[in-house]
Design a protein around this nucleic acid. Structure first.
Lengths: 176, 176
DNA sequence: GCCCAAAACTTGAATGATTCCAGTTTATCG
DNA sequence: CGATAAACTGGAATCATTCAAGTTTTGGGC
């Protein structure tokens, strides 16, 4: 697991290059502080370490590492792609709709059932992706503060109405 | 459920406009044949019915309908956003990595557990999204045909090697 | 150690879904 | 039947990601 970047690259038959080592090590570092970095973010860090690396190279590295299975790609709707080196377990993610902050969560169900579709309709399924959408603590607090301000303002000129149409639950709780 | 578009719009307090009616009805129609349409696709159909409608209007309508909760948005990584009018139940989706074909699947778990993160880390969660990624029957067949051709070609000049690095499972089955 | 073909990387342009903006039209309420 | 806030139009802008053509590097073989 904590093999060196070089070792892991060789293990999956990938050539060992400076950009790849940097990408992998920086992802490890990010991961150890529970960060899920974006490509832009990672590119900055790689350049900070190696001097100058093309954006394309970073994309290429991530593609190579991802399809070799030693890096995992997370593509949250409406937010840039993020990456992590925690692979092999099927943990899920908690993603903030507002800022994109991504946090790992272990699977709620101890066994595999939630990973098996009830009917695969002839598809060859290779991944079950679970994303919990919401607001991170910081953004939730911001939202509450904004709502409070709006309510005070609104109360002056209108009786009720408005009602933040923002995070409309897409599912009704008990009935999956 | 099968209330008229106008009725449903009024029910959620939205103004009734031609574009909105068209969008909602066309989504209903698509849904009844189990289609999950993209914005571009839907815009074509709307124009076909109303003559000329701006792309922006279609986006605006979909945004209004989605946040009012009468339309559901599906944003598959790497594919354009799709929409459906089946809301209120938390069904999931089977999505083809190759062509984006989207198919409904009921939740595998009878009750809610797979919708509750084991730890919410302080987030205010409003949705649990489950996507099963794979290849639809058509694309899977195409893939097999391509692999076969590649194998025949490859066998001529190399012994083994290559091995399609494409759909690398991101999770190991038994261990969620 | 050196060579060379495949694999990586560089640079720069293209793509495409989505969003922003300023101005006009329209639905709804009194 | 106005008034006014909400919708819609047209056109430009954004931004993550991808494509393409050319150059450099890696790693197995001689």
């Amino acid at each position: 697991m904590s093999d060196s970047a070089t070792t892991r690259l060789r293990a999956v038959g990938l050539r060992v290059t400076k950009p790849r080592i940097a990408v992998l090590e920086l992802l490890d570092t990010a991961g150890s502080s529970h960060e899920h970095v974006t490509v832009a973010d990672l590119a900055d860090r790689v350049r900070n370490r190696l001097g100058s690396v093309s954006t394309q190279a970073v994309y290429d590295c991530l593609e190579a590492l991802t399809s070799a299975g030693i890096v995992r790609r997370i593509e949250p709707a409406g937010h840039p792609t993020r990456y992590e080196t925690r692979v092999g377990d099927n943990h899920h993610h908690l993603i903030c709709r507002a800022c994109g902050l991504t946090t790992d969560v272990d699977c709620a169900v101890g066994a595999a059932p939630c990973l098996e579709p009830s009917s695969h309709a002839g598809y060859v399924v290779d991944e079950a992706e679970v994303i919990f959408w919401g607001l991170c603590p910081t953004c939730a607090a911001d939202r509450r503060a904004a709502d409070r301000r709006a309510a005070e303002r609104g109360a002056a000129d209108r009786g009720a109405a408005e009602g933040h149409p923002e995070p409309q639950p897409t599912y009704t709780k008990g009935q999956p």
